[in-house]
Amino acid sequence: MDFFSDNHMWRDLLLQAILILVTIFMFLFMYNVPQKYFSKLRFRNRADMQSKRHFVQGAQLLSQAKSAAVKDRSNAISLAKSAEAQADLAIALDPKDAAAHILKALALDLQGFKTSALDSIDVALSPLAVKSLSEPERADALFKRAQLRLAASRREQIDSVIGDLTQSVRLKGDNVKAFCLLGDCYEKKGLKEEAQKAYQEAQKVQPNFAPAREALDRLNSES
Rank of each mutant, 00 (worst) to 15 (best):
R46T: 11
A69P: 03
E156S: 12
L142R: 14
A195T: 11
S221W: 01
Y37P: 05
Q57T: 09
D94A: 14
R155E: 12
A141R: 02
K104H: 00
F43D: 15
V70H: 14
F209W: 15
R154G: 14
Y37H: 13
E84G: 00
N175R: 14
K189G: 03
N220Q: 13
S221Y: 10
N7M: 02
A90F: 11
E187S: 10
F179I: 06
K71P: 07
F27C: 04
L150A: 11
A59V: 02
L106Y: 10
L28P: 07
F4M: 11
K81Y: 09
L148M: 13
F4G: 00
S67M: 00
M1N: 13
D97F: 03
Y31Q: 13
A83V: 06
K66D: 03
L150G: 06
L216C: 08
A87D: 01
Y31P: 06
A92D: 03
A87E: 01
A152R: 00
E194C: 04
Y186T: 04
R155I: 04
L128E: 15
G190Y: 11
I121Q: 04
Q64H: 12
S82A: 14
L41W: 11
M9T: 15
F29V: 02
R155N: 15
L93E: 06
C185H: 08
K96N: 10
A65C: 10
R145Y: 05
I18P: 03
S223D: 07
D94G: 06
C185V: 03
V22C: 15
R213G: 10
A178P: 10
N7G: 15
P136L: 01
Q60A: 08
A76M: 07
G112R: 07
L148D: 02
R145M: 03
L142W: 04
D140M: 12
K197M: 03
R42F: 10
F4T: 12
D94L: 09
F38K: 09
P211A: 02
D119C: 02
R46S: 10
A17T: 09
L171I: 09
L125E: 00
L19G: 11
V161M: 04
E137L: 04
R155P: 00
G183M: 08
